[in-house]
Nucleic acid binder design. Structure first.
Lengths: 129, 129, 129, 129
DNA sequence: GTGGTCTAGACCACC
DNA sequence: GTGGTCTAGACCACG
């Protein structure tokens, strides 16, 4: 587990941990059923307090991405991949803001769409896992 | 100016105001040179503190989206649309996270791309403005 | 806000706080839109750390019972009262265990049902609020 | 003995085992005098540690539901069914919380009472055993 | 050794 | 003033 963290970012550390893990799960770097490092070991690994890691794990559990198994610690959940109207709305709102910013930053539509497709393709590998 | 604000969101109010304004500029609902409501009137309008609106306006000024004019107040700037490597990297990182989340939420690639294109097309109208 | 807490209970404090608040909401002692004490003041009030109260508030927020409003602090949410299959299943499982225990403790069916009805009636008052 | 266990539940395994056994006793699936599987075989069966099963058996013994017999192992006790004020208070407190949650989850009184009666009826069969 | 809970004390962003 | 985040250190229940 290599995580990319930016301690000087305005984004909180536990959210960065979540983002890293979500990307890893989506890309298949973390497979369903795979165990994550214990909160303590990951905390030591990345040099933060264990509560910070714990918060990230627990939020991911609440979102259905992890199970906290009493015997094996945190493991990647069998993903529901079921659509959720509310979640979908939130994501689309985010996308709208992201695109508005991209557009105003001079990023062309084609460039954006091509990149989005590329990222999505990297995800799709996981489904066959 | 109709703003969508969610006071129980974890996103801060001033950032929500910025998001709203950026979307409006990108979509052309706010045209270049157009004046925004005064800080005071907008604050009253949406029921928030003066400082909150002020902070949003100032951040948008710093990002080059608004000019603060002594007489006309805040007006939409002549947008540079010039590419910024750092900004671009940030946006792409955000996109990666957004897509990972979308993928894990069961949103299909085609659906995502189609929506992204639709949103982008709504933006492109402005360029001819 | 008077809370009944048992510090020697095996049930964790933050869960006891949640239970107290849920009962208060269900009974209408806390009305929709009503503000709760700040985490700090409640923590001081009941003599626990603010993080303990914070955890309770946040869990109730996640469960949809509270909104954390940036301006007003924690307020009782407009309750959805919408049925949730999963939640319902959990509650019924709990009921099954509770009744099994009651039965084996010699509590008669009629006694149990009468009490349940009485408790439920106290809740129903809220709906007309 | 088929047990329903959820290893990613926040409820500890030994308590889940107890719950399962109590339900089985209350429903008459386990009859008075009947032997339970040995600690070892049950542990193997459900894939948990010996100590875990042992703890559940011992707690049930302490609560008067099981007798630990040197030769026959754990057998279902001749149930006292005598009322215990303290226990009764605890159960009623639990019921109050359960009903508050049910009510706020949109479960109607009649639905709840009907289900409670149904569960209780399934228990009453045992009394004639 | 694992996560869960609680305390104490600190700083920060926001309103 | 509010909640949000992070640290540090402690104890406990569980498996």
């Amino acid at each position: 587990m290599k995580l990319e963290l930016d301690f000087s970012s305005s984004k909180s550390i536990y959210l960065q941990i979540e983002d890293n893990l979500i990307k890893a799960i989506a890309k298949g770097d973390l497979k369903i059923g795979e165990s994550l490092p214990s909160v303590r070991s990951m905390a030591e690994d990345i040099g933060v307090n264990l509560h910070t890691v714990n918060k990230a794990y627990n939020e991911l559990k609440d979102r259905g991405y992890l199970n906290i198994d009493r015997r094996k610690g945190a493991v990647v959940a069998d993903l529901p991949m079921k659509k959720n109207e509310i979640k979908e709305k939130e994501l689309f709102d985010e996308l709208e803001i992201l695109i508005s910013n991209s557009f105003l930053s001079g990023i062309q539509k084609d460039e954006f769409l091509k990149l989005a497709e590329k990222i999505y393709n990297e995800c799709e590998v996981v489904k066959n896992d």
